[in-house]
């Protein structure tokens, strides 16, 4: 149930590992992490999602928030989303604004 977002930034790429459930309660936590990492110039935001087990609209809004905050010049890559989470992202069309990758 708990949510974790661990981040690091290196050479213009911010990598955030999401773990647990991203919903109404935890969305603010991700917003803060996004705000932190985007305080410096970024070329890319990579979200590692293989351990994200649940994504509600509140969580999805955090991803949209990241997209809006970073602007079109910053590529957002979602890596390894579980099938149900990926379906939610695709249903809302957000997959057209980001790159969705299988885990490497």
């Amino acid at each position: 149930m708990a949510f974790e977002a661990k981040s690091h930034v290196w050479d213009g790429t911010a990598t955030v590992r999401l773990r647990g459930e991203l919903a109404a309660k935890s969305a603010g936590q991700l917003n803060r992490v996004i705000a932190e990492v985007s305080a410096q110039p970024l070329k890319r935001l990579v979200l590692l999602m293989d351990e994200l087990t649940y994504l509600s609209s509140a969580g999805l809004r955090s991803l949209v928030f990241a997209h809006q905050r970073l602007g079109r010049g910053v590529e957002i890559v979602l890596v390894g989303a579980q099938p149900e989470v990926a379906e939610t992202i695709r249903l809302t069309g957000f997959d057209r604004s980001v790159v969705m990758q299988e885990p490497v």
């Binding site: 509600s56 509140a58 999805l60 809004r61 949209v64 997209h67 809006q68 939610t88 249903l91 957000f94």
Partner: peptide, 13 residues
């Protein structure tokens, strides 16, 4: 998503 207001996503889902 750059242009829309937040909200509506939940009901859509």
């Amino acid at each position: 998503p750059h242009e829309r207001e937040p909200g509506g996503l939940g009901l859509f889902l």
